[in-house]
Amino acid sequence: MRISIVQTKPLKGTIDQNLRSHVKFIEAAVNKNVDLIVFPELSLTGYEPELAQELATTASDSRLDVLQQLSDKHSISIWVGLPTRNNNQLFISMIIIQPNQNKITYSKQYLFPPEREIFTSGNNPLVFHFDNEHIVAPAICFELSNPEHHEYAAEQKATIYIASVLNSVTGVDADIEKLSAIAKKYKMTVFMANYVGQSGGYECAGRSSVWDQQGQLIAQLDGVTEGQLIYDTKTTNILSDPLFD
């Protein structure tokens, strides 16, 4: 299975422009026969909680049709971030797009304390069976700091744990240590997709990474450059230079 984690520099609150950037990364991943591509937390808007009321949408938003078309055509699963709305409630969500299937909305279950003033916690724990070998668990940022989240993934026999995050330069080292520990404790291959640049008032740290099942760092992007890191779980190789123009 080939997995890409994408490191982006978000444009504040501009879904259409961020979407165009996402398409470029997906097309590059398709050329490397990637099976799953994952973007950072709230990747299509940037991490902008104060804009969530204005920007929130649903998985049926027609602007996402281009991603579904790419998924169907190239048999690639695509995970992107959006604030979503259900009646009067707002959620930090991951839209999960799979080939020739209905979209799934996974909403952050464990909110960072300041987020609780704006967002509602999700209540839809899940893992994905990609084939006979790989069970993949999604995590959205602060969820990786909650033992209940990775314990659930382990109970479901997840072999891969993917964290879609906004991680700041002041917080990234702690989360890198946590993700390495998750990999080692549960014998999972663990990924982190993060931003570079600024978003939500944070200076984002980049350093998107992958760890093996012993918790050892396999590969990591830098702290300033947009790019994607592609990992082949069968060969355990990085397929190419992870940075794309």
Rank of each mutant, 00 (worst) to 15 (best):
N86I: 10
Q213D: 14
K9L: 07
N87M: 10
P138V: 01
N237V: 04
T45N: 12
L90M: 04
L111C: 06
A181I: 00
P10S: 06
D175T: 07
E115Y: 14
N124F: 04
S71F: 02
F119Y: 14
A59Y: 01
I92D: 04
S168G: 15
L221P: 05
T233I: 07
V80T: 13
T236V: 06
Q98L: 10
T84D: 00
Q17D: 13
G215E: 11
Q109N: 08
S145H: 07
L36V: 15
H74M: 01
V172Q: 13
D35S: 14
S180L: 04
I118Q: 03
Y202R: 02
F112N: 10
V38Y: 02
R85G: 01
T189R: 04
A137C: 14
E148G: 10
A205C: 09
S71I: 05
P147V: 13
K9T: 08
E155W: 00
Q228T: 09
A139Y: 08
L82N: 05
N124G: 09
Y202I: 06
L51P: 02
K32S: 14
L44W: 01
V196D: 01
K178E: 12
G223Y: 05
D245T: 13
P40D: 11
Q89C: 05
Y106A: 04
I5T: 09
F191Q: 04
K73R: 14
D173P: 00
S107E: 06
T14Q: 12
Q228W: 03
P83V: 03
Q89L: 14
F91R: 04
D212R: 08
R207A: 03
P83F: 03
K9G: 00
G81V: 07
R63H: 10
S62T: 13
V165R: 11
N146P: 03
S145W: 00
Y186N: 14
A29P: 06
G171I: 01
L82A: 05
F91C: 02
E115R: 01
D16K: 11
I5L: 12
K12R: 14
W211P: 12
Q68R: 07
N132R: 12
G81M: 07
S145Q: 11
Q98K: 15
S121L: 08
A158R: 07
P114S: 09
V38I: 15
S75H: 13
H74N: 15
I5R: 08
L221C: 07
E115Q: 12
E148N: 15
S4Q: 02
L111G: 07
M1T: 13
K157E: 15
G201K: 09
M1I: 09
A163G: 08
V66D: 03
I3M: 11
I218Y: 04
I140G: 01
Y152H: 10
W79A: 08
E48M: 11
D175W: 02
A181R: 13
S121Q: 15
Q198A: 12
M1V: 10
T235K: 12
T84K: 00
V224F: 09
N18T: 08
L64E: 02
Q53I: 10
G81I: 04
W79E: 01
Q7H: 08
E151Q: 15
R116M: 12
Q7P: 12
R2Y: 05
S208T: 12
P10R: 06
V196Q: 05
Q156L: 07
L70N: 08
D16M: 01
E203A: 15
P99L: 03
